[in-house]
Design a protein around this nucleic acid. Structure first.
Lengths: 335, 335
DNA sequence: GCGAGTAATCGAAGCGCTTCGACGAAACGG
DNA sequence: CCGTTTCGTCGAAGCGCTTCGATTACTCGC
């Protein structure tokens, strides 16, 4: 194992000088810096993480708490995780993966044993039970999602209320008068996952404002549930011409089922999806969609966590404006 | 911050005694043990990870290298990751997430800075370029997948050759004489990802042995590619009665496309999928399938890594036997 | 009843790093 | 030209833990 002492010896300086070259915390002459850097790459030196953490109380590790249930959209989670890891590396940090079922004790353990400098927590519920622990950790925490009372915790999310509104506005502008929201699984609403409710609210409010007939239909992610759901939609809304789908898992089934029922998209019925861009493009019909910016959220979360670590900055709540992309699955309402 | 000295003071013993209570490396009287344990939970003590790593050169962290491309099956990766994290916790280890695009330097960094005790590497290719680095790390490494020459590296995977064979055997036993394999994207083959080739080999060999007509058709994960692929299948094999699908992403599209073409499953054509159990059950038709045991592989990988850490055990290559579950998407060949 | 174990505990060294105070040399201001 | 900064470097302390003797007090076998 190559230690800082080895590097120091090779470069003819003291260990502390090597340390200062690495951290840049004190000025070092250009000449010395070069010699040290040279010895470092010559010897293939990498600072021992444990020693560094012990001495500096900085671990350069970010803890990421992800939900591992499968009723959540898996690709979205994955995109988020990928972006987080990638972004963290640009700040010279690694990512420790924790699952939601570690629970409060797990979070406490991570903080108390100084395993990570900051935490990023996905899948936040409206009345989030982990909030008290998270606050007591004395470590920067970034929530993905917005609980009822974030307090001094940083939050970042898509502005789902605005997204719900935008979906209705888009259809209204195309002349649709009767629309239905096919939402996430009832389990998601029951759990109080905050985005579901926020989207629904935006959807409802705007529909009312635009004087449209609108219904909301949660749908579990299975063919049978989808068929039943569509039966309900058309029974309760015989005149429906626009579908907003806030449930990535059933996009494929929905399109083939509409096809089977002889409904053409967008001639007979418009479909607007809320899902990642690539998913909207991968369907049998390219879907007009409001993007779920998983990757953007991931790197933003890291960035915010880092800022709080460095500047000790203030807590903030950041909601990304929805972006709607027309791809031809929505059109003028049939007259 | 609560330190081991605090605990020692509270329990009226020396720090080393507390350490021995925690590690069990020396005998401790029942009475002392109880007092120490009590102080520990009283004070909410958690050993500082950095200090522990520094003193013991054990980090209790497992590095997991995952591919983050999206042409790989995302849910499978996720299941694997989840199982790994969960299993690691039972060994009191945490999981550090690395992406494949960290490359060899990233691996070297992890080992050299003593961030993790062992590595688990997913998405191994036949001629795996990371092999030399991995071997030079002097740390236990478990590969998910089997490269051409594993050497002293531990490997674990589904026995894809046997799986390919089993798929054909199943259809042959049902009287099918002409079958087609709808495989992973051409990119997967080109990359030399080992499982694709191994499955294909088993499929081919058994088809020959059973004197069947058989074709293989890679398919990119999109509707258009699938349609083209099916066109090819039926053009080259007008008499095909059995489809083996080794491509999770197109299962849904495939079923609806077959439906659109007026082919009933399994009356007109049998479909056998290679995919996780839950995916086989979630389709519009419940699919007879050979399971991809992602979760099992994940926990097995951790177990093997731990064994090598503790016992310094031997390298081994472990191939799980395929398990085929009939669910009604395969039936007797139409006469 | 004495030497040889064994069980239970302690003290101290040391893991590899960061960081603080000190110090000599050079630069600077009046 | 002398006191004061500033620059560049060093030495040493110490982060919180594990682990290796050393030590004491017993227990046994004969």
């Amino acid at each position: 194992m190559v230690t800082i002492a080895d590097v120091a010896r090779a470069a003819g300086v003291s260990p502390s000088t090597v340390s200062y070259v690495l951290s840049g915390r004190r000025s070092i002459s250009e000449d010395t810096r070069r010699r040290v850097q040279h010895s470092i790459s010559e010897l293939g030196y990498h600072p021992n993480a444990g020693a560094r953490a012990l001495a500096s109380s900085r671990t350069n590790v970010l803890a990421l708490v992800v939900p591992l249930r499968t009723d959540l959209n898996v690709p979205v989670v994955m995109q988020f995780v990928a972006a987080t890891v990638t972004e963290a590396r640009t700040y010279d940090h690694d990512v420790l993966l924790l699952t939601k079922n570690e629970g409060p004790d797990g979070l406490r353990r991570i903080a108390a044993s100084a395993i990570a400098d900051a935490l990023i927590v996905m899948d936040v519920e409206t009345s989030e039970p982990r909030l008290p622990v998270l606050r007591s950790l004395h470590r920067p925490v970034v929530l993905i999602g917005v609980p009822a009372d974030p307090g001094d915790l940083t939050c970042v999310d898509l502005d789902f209320t605005a997204a719900g509104a935008a979906s209705v506005t888009h259809l209204a502008d195309l002349g649709h008068r009767e629309v239905a929201l096919i939402g996430p699984s009832p389990a998601v609403y029951k759990r109080g996952t905050s985005y579901a409710g926020r989207f629904l609210r935006g959807f409802r409010q705007t529909a009312t404002k635009r004087k449209m007939r609108a219904g909301s239909f949660p749908c579990a992610p299975s063919y049978d549930a989808l068929r039943a759901c569509l039966d309900d939609v058309f029974a309760e809304h015989p005149g429906v011409t626009g579908l907003v789908v806030h449930n990535e898992a059933i996009l494929g089934p929905l399109l083939s089922e509409l096809n089977r029922r002889g409904k053409q998209v967008p001639q007979d019925i418009s479909v607007l999806a809320v899902c990642p861009e690539d998913m909207a493009e991968a369907q049998s019909v390219q879907l007009t969609s409001i993007a779920i910016p998983a990757a953007e959220l991931g790197s933003l979360a890291v960035e915010m966590a880092m800022r709080r670590l460095d500047d000790g900055g203030q807590a903030e709540v950041r909601l990304l404006s929805p972006r709607l992309t027309e791809r031809g699955s929505t059109g003028l309402a049939p007259s």
